[in-house]
Design a protein around this nucleic acid. Structure first.
Lengths: 335, 335
DNA sequence: CTGAAAGCGCTTACAG
DNA sequence: CTGAAAGCGCTTACAG
């Protein structure tokens, strides 16, 4: 059997209260006693039982991470960052892939509640405002990552999507592109629609109006990006540049161009969004509006952990600047 | 405050033992009583506290997943599969990215022990036999995934690496390649060295001896694959085909070929191993020896969970067949 | 079929 | 500076 607090107390000839105090660095314990107890703990290879500790009133030091799909590189990278910062602060993280399905969100939320996690970081679809309410009601600390939900009084950290869309447009505009098209996500995804809006606004400010047919709403997968891009590139007057709202869609676009025999970037430029590992692995490597993934993960953890000690601090909404990374998928439009 | 078992007991006019029984489907409770109690639980939105339940002797229904890096697509895909099967069986999973660093492994192992997880699935480097011993001593169920460690009496599920190497060689040999080279991982990684061995053996059985200079040990990253592939492809008599022990290395090889102006597959064939999302996203898409990632994740969970109920069943070592997926990175050698 | 009671391994006022 | 005691929310023999 594993050693318990009783074992070390007996061994040291003190009460378990005293042992508990040295574990938690509380109360005043004489120097020698403390060191003696520390020694005994080491000798017995004693580790406080986190379950018991949590039940007795301390935190569980566990966080939940809700994402659509951990195998999606974007969320895998988010997860890594969340994990690292969590670990740094003493928290472990439970992964919850929801596939953006209401049913799964519900199940996971219940589970996290039962497991008494201290907080949850939410990177999953946001149509679930209702489902998240229960979390807040039970005064669970929550933070949204890579998205925001005005209806929720919750902290969040995300990239400035509007600005990102603008950056993409300006890059293409400066290269001289005039026939632009957009591969967007589902329009209910606000981060995507913000990107599109930024893109459209920037184009407008250069006197360019994007006809609605130039904006395709796609599912979040390569195949759909491929399909929609292909349709656009087969048009009589085809766009010379495509703005894709995430790396998966951009890969689909690349594939469509290749299949149609269009060289990228010579005959068709592509700007992506996110900058996961995928963006640097394609041929050509993707020019992309990068999200500060690592930083967002770190800050999201800080937000929920801060919310924990929180004397009810108001929600903080952090918006980080996007960055244009020029690689090789963009160039001057064909003459 | 959240409702407790006392609240529903009081409300129902029964003892908490009875409530506990209906929660766990134990003992005989009269039909009406059960339903009444169920109703009350629903009305109070009662969820048993998993922490208390675990302390009182039940499982924590939590699994640890040790991997080198969750942001590596291979492990992200493993994680997804583990998560799904775990969730199916009522378990949540805590992610632990160790970067194959002994220090981090140690910290995570201690953490998992303190959190009293029921089992841990290990996909991380295996030089850590020593570090894993403590897990077993505390009779934690463990299962290795995508690797095995003969020194450990533990269940495992992996692909038949030797056979995979063989498949790769035979594919290239049948195409007519004779000048072969290999991008391997660190030779201490047994899965990689098995792949290389299979490859070399198959070549030998076709009367081909690979000179040692044709096998490069690489770090597990794109840059290193790139560097080593480049060196090989710059040789006076360069290989006409490269076998890469994982997708990251293959991507590096693709990049090197591109930079040297060598067309893949016309001038240089590339066979990869793993078949993560990366393999289907490159240009050209990679011919690859696929690991049954989804299946391995599922079986690993089954192995640890079975080990839990286990009346000390002996360790099971499952070896799954690899599959050759021919995409567009391989062709006949240049004339 | 149901309940009283002990116990899981801790923490935390409180008293001294 | 240290300890006795109550309590966290459950489960599980055991008794009836």
């Amino acid at each position: 059997m594993r050693a318990t607090i009783y074992d070390v107390a007996r061994e040291a000839g003190v009460s378990i209260a005293t042992v508990s105090h040295v574990i938690n660095g509380k109360g005043k314990i004489s120097r020698e006693r403390r060191e003696e107890i520390l020694d005994i703990m080491k000798r017995l290879n004693y580790r406080p039982n986190a379950i018991a500790s949590a039940l007795a009133g301390k935190r569980t030091f566990t966080l939940g991470l809700l994402v659509p799909d951990i195998s999606n590189p974007f969320f895998a990278e988010i997860a890594r960052s969340v994990e690292d910062q969590g670990h740094q602060l003493g928290y472990s993280v439970i992964i919850c892939s929801t596939d953006n399905q209401e049913e799964k969100v519900k199940r996971y939320v219940n589970l996290l509640r039962q497991k008494q996690v201290d907080g949850v970081i939410i990177g999953t679809g946001i149509s679930h405002g209702e489902l998240l309410k229960p979390l807040q009601e039970h005064s669970l600390a929550i933070a949204l990552i890579a998205r925001d939900n005005p209806a929720l009084d919750a902290s969040s950290v995300r990239v400035h999507d509007l600005e990102g869309g603008r950056l993409a447009a300006e890059h293409l505009l400066h290269l001289g592109h005039r026939r632009l098209a957009v591969l967007a996500e589902n329009e209910r995804v606000t981060s995507s629609s913000d990107r599109v809006r930024g893109f459209v606004e920037a184009a407008a400010s250069h006197g360019l109006v994007l006809p609605p047919g130039c904006i395709a709403a796609c599912d979040h997968k390569i195949e759909d990006g491929y399909r929609r891009a292909k349709a656009m590139l087969e048009l009589a007057v085809r766009p010379t540049a495509l703005f894709c709202c995430n790396d998966l869609l951009a890969i689909g676009a690349l594939r469509a161009a290749r299949e149609l025999g269009l060289r990228v970037p010579e005959e068709c430029s592509v700007v992506s969004f996110d900058d996961t590992i995928l963006a640097s692995v394609t041929d050509p490597p993707l020019t992309v509006i990068a999200q500060p993934i690592e930083q967002m993960g770190r800050m999201a953890v800080d937000l929920v952990v801060r919310g924990l000690s929180g004397k009810g601090d108001p929600a903080r909404r952090i918006v980080l600047p996007p960055e244009l990374i020029v690689r090789q998928s963009t160039a001057l439009p064909p003459a």
